[in-house]
Design a protein around this nucleic acid. Structure first.
Length: 694
DNA sequence: GGGTATTAAT
C-alpha cells in the first residue's frame, strides 16, 4: 500500500519538474501549492530515504520534492531534514537550489541549519557559514554542539584567527567547550593560524584529549618550526602514529637536523611511503645528494649494492612514487649525475608513473643541469599540463646552456600560451640577457617587468642588471644602479661588480669594491681571491701578500677547485693539483699528450690567473693541474666518443682552462661540456657555446 | 539524523 503510494507520487511528480525548473521555485506559486488542502501522509521516513537514495538525476529528486510540496509533507520536520540532507549530498544539486528549498521550509531545526552550513563550507564558501549562523541565532534557534566544529572549520579555512576567537567566546559562554570535537577543531584552527598560545590554552585545559588533539597540536608546532615543543609533544603522545613520526622527520629536515631525522627513521618500527620520501627529501634539502640517491637506490633494491640501508629496505619493499622521484631527480640534478637521472627517467616510463607537472619540471631541470638540452625539450613537449615553474625551468635551462635566443623565444611563447610570468621567470629572462651581454634587451625586460607585469624587482633582479651592465663594460652605470637599488645589495651583487672590475681591468673601482666586500663578509674566500687576482694581474705583489695575510688572519680558506665527472655510473672527483686518483699514471700520460697537442694548436698558458708569486714555469704547471684539466684527461681516457665528456665544477672555469678546453675539443675531436658555478660551456670544434662571453 | 586532525616534491 505504502509502496504504491510513493510510486504514484513519483510518477505524478514528473508533471511538476518542468514547472519547478521554469519558475525557479517562484515563491507565490509554491506557496499556493503548499496551501492547497493536504492529505496527511502516513509515509515511513525510511521509504522516503530509500527513494532519495536512489536518485541519479535532478529530475528524480524534483519529482519527490514537488510531491512533498504538493502534499504538504514538507512541513514534517523530519521529512524536510531528510530532503535537505540529501540535497546537500547530491553532487548534481547546486547549493543555491538547496538554499531555495531550505528557504521554503517553515519548521527548520538545528540539524537542517547545520547541514546548510556544512554544504557552504564544502562548496568553498566558508564565509556563508557565519551568515547562516547569525540568521540561525536571530531565528531564536540555538546552535548545538554540532554547529561549532563546522564554524571553527570555516575559520580554519579562512585562516581567520579573529573569527575563531569570537566563536571560541560563544563556545565558552554556552558551555560547549567540554565537547571533544569542539576542542579539537579549536586546537587545529589556532594551530593553522600559527597562534600556538591559544591552541595550547585549549589543549592544556584539563579535559579529555584524544589522538586528534595530540596530532593537531603537534602539527601546529611543526608548522611554525618549533622543534623543542614539537619534540616535547611527540614524546608525550600516548600513541605515536606513523603520520606524527613522519611529520617529525619533515621538521628535522627543514631545520637541518639530519642526524635526528635519521635517528628517528631508524627507530621507527613501521614505515610507509611518506617516511622514505621524507627522508630522501631531507637529504636532498640538506645538500646530501649522495645519501638521497643511495637511500632511493636501497629503497627498491636496484643497481649498486650499498651499505646497510639495502638490507633494511629489502624487507620494506616500497615502490617509490612521483613525490619520491622528485627528490631523487633533484639530487641527481645537483650532482650532475646524468646516468642516475636517466635511470630514474627510465624507471618512470617502465613503471607507468604519470609525469605530472612537478615531476616533469624536475626532469627538465635535471636534464638542463646536466647539459642535455634536447632531452629536456623532449620532456617539455611531452608534457600535457605545464605550469609557470615548467616554463621557468625551460627558460633558465636554455639560458644556462648558452641558448639565449631560444630562451627568450620561449619567454614569448609562454606569454602566447597565457601563462603569467612570475619573479623567477624574470630571473631567467634577465639571466639570459646577461649571458650574452644583451644590455638593451635586458633593460627592456627589466622595465616591462615593473610596468607591464607589476612585479617589484627583488635583489636578484637588481643583481642580474648590475652584472649585465658590469660585464658589458658599463661599470659606472652598474655602480650607480647598485647604489640606487631600494634594498641593501647582497654580497652576490657586490661580487658581480667586483668580477666586472676584474674583467675590464678597472683596478681602482676593483680595489674599492673588493675592500668593501671583504668588510661585509670577511670569511668569504672568493672575494679575497678575486681582489688578490686583480692586484696580481697588475703585478702588485705587495698587495697580494697583504690580502693573503688578511685571509690567514680571518682564517679564510681558499675553497679548492673541484671537478666531477661521471663514468660508467660512478662519479669521480678531482681537486686542483690532485694526485690521489688510482688511475693517476694514465692521467699523467694523457696530460703530457694534451700539452703536446695544445702547443700544436698554438696554445700559450694564460698565467695571469695564478695567484702565487712564483716564476712562470711553476705557474704553468699549476695551471695544468687545474681540476677541470685533470677531469678532461680522465674523460679522454675513460669515455669513448661520441659521448660528450661532461664535467661539473664547483667554481667558475678560469680563462686558461676555457681556452684549453676549446682547443682540446678541436685537437681530440671531442665534445666537452663543462657546467661551472654559473652556467654551461659546450665546447666543440674549437668553439664554446658561450661565444667567449661569460 | 549531523560535527574534528595528520605526513612527501619543482
Amino acid at each position: 500500500m505504502v509502496w504504491r503510494q510513493i510510486q504514484r507520487w513519483v510518477c505524478e511528480g514528473k508533471r511538476y519538474v518542468n514547472f519547478l525548473k521554469s519558475n525557479h521555485l517562484s515563491y507565490a506559486r509554491i506557496s499556493s501549492l503548499i496551501h492547497k488542502p493536504t492529505f496527511k501522509p502516513t509515509i515511513d521516513l525510511s521509504i522516503l530515504e530509500f527513494h532519495l537514495n536512489k536518485c541519479q538525476h535532478i529530475n528524480q529528486f524534483n519529482q519527490i520534492l514537488s510531491q512533498m510540496l504538493l502534499t504538504g509533507f514538507i512541513r514534517e520536520t523530519y521529512a524536510a531534514s531528510r530532503l535537505i540532507k540529501f540535497s546537500t549530498h547530491f553532487p548534481f544539486i547546486h547549493i543555491d537550489y538547496t538554499r531555495r528549498i531550505f528557504n521554503f521550509i517553515e519548521n527548520t531545526n538545528c540539524f537542517m541549519w547545520n547541514m546548510m552550513i556544512r554544504a557552504y563550507i564544502q562548496t568553498n564558501s566558508p564565509h556563508f557559514a557565519f551568515t547562516l549562523y547569525k540568521s540561525m541565532l536571530s531565528n531564536y534557534l540555538g546552535a548545538d554542539n554540532y554547529t561549532y566544529p563546522l564554524l571553527i572549520q570555516a575559520c580554519s579555512i579562512r585562516r581567520s584567527e579573529w573569527e575563531a576567537k569570537q566563536v571560541h567566546n560563544h563556545v565558552l559562554k554556552l558551555g560547549f567547550d567540554s565537547d571533544v570535537y569542539v576542542r579539537n577543531t579549536l586546537i587545529n584552527c589556532f594551530s593553522v593560524c600559527s597562534n600556538m598560545t591559544d591552541a595550547r590554552r585549549v589543549f592544556d585545559e584539563n579535559s579529555i584529549l584524544d589522538s586528534v588533539s595530540w596530532n593537531s597540536i603537534l602539527a601546529g608546532y611543526v608548522q611554525i618550526g618549533n622543534v623543542e615543543e614539537a619534540k616535547h609533544i611527540y614524546h608525550q603522545m600516548p600513541e605515536r602514529s606513523i603520520i606524527a613520526s613522519n611529520s617529525m622527520i619533515v621538521l628535522f629536515g627543514i631545520k637541518g637536523l639530519v642526524v635526528e631525522a635519521c635517528k628517528l627513521f631508524d627507530a621507527m618500527l613501521e614505515k610507509d611511503m611518506v617516511t622514505w620520501s621524507a627522508l630522501i627529501a631531507c637529504f636532498q634539502q640538506n645538500e646530501m645528494f649522495e645519501e638521497a640517491i643511495r637511500t632511493f637506490v636501497g629503497m627498491h633494491k636496484i643497481g649498486v649494492m650499498v651499505d646497510e640501508v639495502v638490507a633494511e629496505m629489502q624487507m620494506s619493499g616500497f615502490k617509490p612514487d612521483e613525490a619520491t622521484l622528485v627528490s631523487v631527480i633533484s639530487a641527481c640534478a645537483r650532482l650532475a649525475a646524468l646516468e642516475q637521472g636517466k635511470w630514474v627517467h627510465a624507471y618512470i616510463k617502465k613503471n607507468g608513473l604519470t609525469i605530472n607537472v612537478i615531476l616533469g619540471t624536475t626532469l627538465i631541470d635535471m636534464y638542463m643541469k646536466c647539459g642535455c638540452v634536447e632531452t629536456a625539450l623532449e620532456v617539455f613537449y611531452g608534457m600535457i599540463e605545464k605550469g609557470v615553474s615548467t616554463w621557468n625551468a625551460l627558460i633558465l635551462g636554455l639560458a644556462m646552456n648558452g641558448l639565449v635566443e631560444s630562451s627568450l623565444d620561449m619567454f614569448s611563447n609562454m606569454k602566447k600560451c597565457h601563462v603569467t610570468p612570475n619573479e623567477i621567470t624574470f630571473v631567467g629572462v634577465l639571466g639570459a640577457c646577461r649571458h650574452m651581454g644583451l644590455v638593451d634587451e635586458g633593460q627592456h625586460h627589466f622595465h616591462s617587468m615593473i610596468h607591464d607585469h607589476k612585479i617589484q624587482p627583488n635583489v636578484k633582479h637588481y643583481g642580474c642588471m648590475v652584472d649585465l651592465l658590469g660585464r658589458a663594460g658599463k661599470l659606472q652605470e652598474a655602480e650607480e644602479l647598485l647604489n640606487r637599488m631600494p634594498m641593501t645589495p647582497d654580497v652576490a651583487t657586490w661580487g658581480a661588480l667586483l668580477g666586472a672590475c676584474k674583467k675590464h681591468g678597472d683596478s681602482e673601482m676593483g680595489k674599492r669594491v673588493g675592500r668593501k666586500l671583504i668588510e661585509l663578509q670577511p670569511d668569504h674566500d672568493g672575494f679575497h681571491v678575486l681582489l688578490s687576482n686583480i692586484y696580481a694581474s697588475k703585478g702588485k705583489w705587495d698587495d697580494v701578500l697583504e690580502i693573503r695575510g688578511m685571509m690567514t688572519k680571518h682564517r679564510v680558506l681558499k675553497i679548492p677547485g673541484c671537478s666531477m665527472i661521471e663514468a660508467n655510473g660512478v662519479i669521480h672527483e678531482f681537486l686542483a693539483g690532485d694526485k690521489t686518483h688510482p688511475n693517476m699514471d694514465a692521467i699523467e700520460d694523457m696530460l703530457v699528450e694534451m700539452a703536446m697537442k695544445l702547443k700544436l694548436e698554438g696554445y700559450t698558458p694564460d698565467t695571469n690567473e695564478v695567484l702565487l708569486d712564483v716564476d712562470e714555469e711553476e705557474k704553468e704547471s699549476t695551471l695544468f693541474r687545474h681540476s677541470e684539466k685533470l677531469a678532461i684527461a680522465f674523460g679522454l681516457i675513460n669515455i669513448s666518443p661520441p659521448t660528450p665528456i661532461r664535467i661539473m665544477k664547483n667554481l667558475r672555469i678560469c680563462n686558461d682552462c676555457h681556452t684549453a678546453a676549446k682547443l682540446i675539443s678541436k685537437a681530440f675531436c671531442r665534445k666537452i661540456v663543462v657546467r661551472d658555478r654559473h652556467r654551461f660551456h659546450h665546447f666543440e670544434q674549437g668553439f664554446c657555446s658561450c661565444k667567449d662571453y661569460w
